[in-house]
Design a protein around this nucleic acid. Structure first.
Length: 572
RNA sequence: GGCGAUGUAGCUCAGUUGGUUAGAGCAGCGGAAUCAUAAUCCGCGUGUCCGGGGUUCAAAUCCCUGCAUCGCCA
């Protein structure tokens, strides 16, 4: 039995995510986790919220709440939505957990011991009114180059010239609008990533089977310009993991916290401990997933993430892991995903453009979204959501091909034989041909799922559904019933078993519908069909079933038009 | 501005290390069937593979260049 550690990039705590965020990480990770479990493999699937940093502080202030309280509430909201989309996390953690604090401080201490941390004293802009240092993007002023009045601290959006915040004329804080700014000296820790450039490069070069997207982004950061840069890992903030060297205070760093990108990936490890702690398990239970000296040497670790997160996962986090000099599990495969666009543009939170996770669940069940999103996942390039395409796919694939198959089989059986698996007759050439085709297709499906070729998996699964309709069409039990009822009985017995088979195979994509079908067939046999012929004998003569309600309904043109208008975005 | 992609049938996309008449699903057209959610099944594609050069016996696939779209960065 293989062991799979699977993590999805952790969403930022601030606000509800849109469908692009969902399909870019959590959803394909969930598909993979469900598939591996269904094959009988051992899986630990983790996700969490990324809670630290300035945006969370500002959002909390805006909501008039203490930041920890705000985060706790938003975590609950995100947890609820993830459940709504049937994310099968073994644990949905929080980067603000005590466990993550401990690990983050531990890693910083180890990295310092290994000579990979440098203390740097630098000048930064401090806002007296806001009582905080301002990140570049929170400073605006007049561009010294072109005179544009809303140039950002890092770049002028008008003339595109790169700027340094100190060069801005009449700079002000975008948080408060205050112009009471001054330069202050402050000390920060830098992670000396450049020291490990060669080691990282060799590691990335060895990953021939990773998506090109993943390796090309990593290589760009490794070799672009002066090569991999050292990065600051601390900030002058209050909301974050306090800077410590292991369990000791860090001289000169009192009152500072680690920068989010440093502590967020460490949450993957901390989350495993949170999982163990929350479920009455021992340290050994999580360590066997993460420590190669404590049982994790046979674990296959797969990470899922959108392309914006690739640099941190291919470079920065590996520096933390490798640089610690301790036997932590390093990622084996990084499934990097592109972006999903919305109807010819980007999803936009500020403009209310596109469908957000809570809105999606309010208008249709999660399976409809899961199917469309997964079968159109942006694997090789950015992909596009349009309502026409969504309506067509849902109606054709789910309602017509799969849903109608279930409907025609169960209703025909009920009218001719009753709601019970009929007896008599036996399989002939048509049935053997179907089994041969299904065997080939199911093996291909498994291959694609193992390789995380999500679109190809969806396409193969659909072909498996279609095979059932093709069989019915040629077998034509409505004709054979008139001449040879026993033959029709054998045909329908097979078709009823196909429904159970489809439920098992489809569960990673559409878990709710799969469960409904299993219940309708009065079975709990969810064993993966290693032998198709045997699997089609699961429901035996005399077993009762219930004709299910409509498995998937169709989306009407009126609904499509209404949603199209509702989510187009109005504000600008 | 720098960098990275992407550009294949009306639409959404496949096309592995360059190699037989460039593929799938949807839409469209024609037919079969009538068990079923007006569902299903079968048949039908002469597409400047973005343009222009080049390498090669052979390029959608490699190189150069132009254009377009998108994204990222400081």
């Amino acid at each position: 039995m293989a062991r799979h550690l699977i993590t999805s990039a952790i969403p930022y705590i601030n606000g509800i995510k849109h469908l692009g965020n969902l399909v870019g990480s959590q959803l394909p990770a969930d598909l993979y986790a469900r598939f591996q479990r269904a094959r009988g493999n051992e899986v630990l699937f983790l996700c969490a919220t990324d809670e630290h940093g300035t945006p969370a502080e500002l959002a909390a202030a805006k909501a008039g709440k203490p930041v920890d309280e705000y985060c706790a509430e938003m975590w609950a909201v995100q947890d609820e939505i993830a459940k709504g989309f049937r994310m099968s996390f073994d644990h949905f953690g929080r980067s603000s957990s005590q466990q993550n604090r401990d690990f983050t401080q531990h890693f910083a201490g180890r990295l310092a011991d290994e000579g990979l941390i440098e203390e740097v004293t630098e000048q930064q802009i401090y806002s007296n009114t806001d009582g905080r240092f301002l990140p570049d993007r929170y400073i605006e002023g007049t561009c010294p180059n072109c005179g544009f009045e809303s140039a950002r601290g890092d770049q002028c959006d008008n003339c595109t010239k790169q700027l340094d915040p100190v060069d801005l004329i009449n700079p002000y804080s975008t948080i408060s609008g205050s112009t009471d700014l001054e330069m202050r000296e402050t000390k920060h820790l830098y992670l000396r990533q450049s020291q490990m450039k060669d080691q990282l490069s060799e590691w990335i070069e060895s990953k021939n089977d990773w998506p090109v997207l993943t390796t090309s982004i990593a290589k760009k950061w490794l070799h672009d310009g002066d090569g991999l840069q050292d990065r600051g890992i601390t900030r002058d903030l209050s909301w974050g993991v306090p800077v410590k060297r292991g369990t000791e205070d860090w001289p000169g760093m009192a009152g500072k916290v680690f920068y989010v990108w440093f502590d967020a990936p460490i949450e993957y490890i901390a989350c495993a401990k949170e999982w163990a702690d929350a479920n009455g398990k021992s340290d050994a239970d999580w360590q066997r997933w993460w420590r190669t000296d404590m049982g994790a040497e046979d674990v296959r670790y797969t990470q899922f993430m959108g392309k914006d997160n690739i640099p941190f996962h291919t470079l920065s986090f590996p520096v933390t892991i490798l640089g610690s000099g301790e036997p932590w599990k390093l990622v084996d495969y990084i499934k990097g995903l592109n972006y999903l666009n919305y109807d010819g543009g980007q999803f936009s939170t500020s403009r209310g453009r596109g469908v957000f996770m809570d809105q999606a669940l309010a208008i249709l069940p999660s399976d409809y979204w899961r199917w469309w999103l997964l079968s159109h996942v942006p694997e090789s390039s950015d992909s596009e959501f349009t309502w026409e395409n969504f309506q067509a796919s849902v109606n054709k694939d789910l309602a017509d091909v799969l849903g109608n198959f279930v409907s025609r089989v169960t209703k025909f059986c009920r009218s001719k034989f009753g709601e019970v698996v009929p007896e008599g007759g036996k399989w002939g050439e048509q049935e053997e041909a179907l089994i041969a085709e299904l065997t080939t297709r199911v093996r291909a499906y498994e291959g694609h799922m193992d390789a995380m070729e999500v679109r190809k998996s969806a396409s193969e699964l659909r072909a498996i559904w279609v095979a059932g309709n093709e069989y019915l069409q040629t077998a034509a039990p409505w004709v054979t019933f008139k001449e040879d009822p026993e033959k029709a009985a054998a045909q329908i017995r097979l078709a009823l078993n196909l429904i159970r088979l489809y439920a098992v195979l489809s569960a990673p994509f559409i878990p709710d519908a799969a469960e409904d079908l299993m219940k309708a067939m009065h079975t709990e046999d969810a064993e993966w069909p290693d032998d198709i012929s045997a699997a089609l004998g699961s429901l035996a003569v005399g077993d009762a079933f219930t004709v299910p309600d409509v498995t998937f309904r169709k989306i009407t043109d009126d609904e499509r038009e209404e949603w199209q208008a509702r989510f187009a975005g109005t504000r600008d």
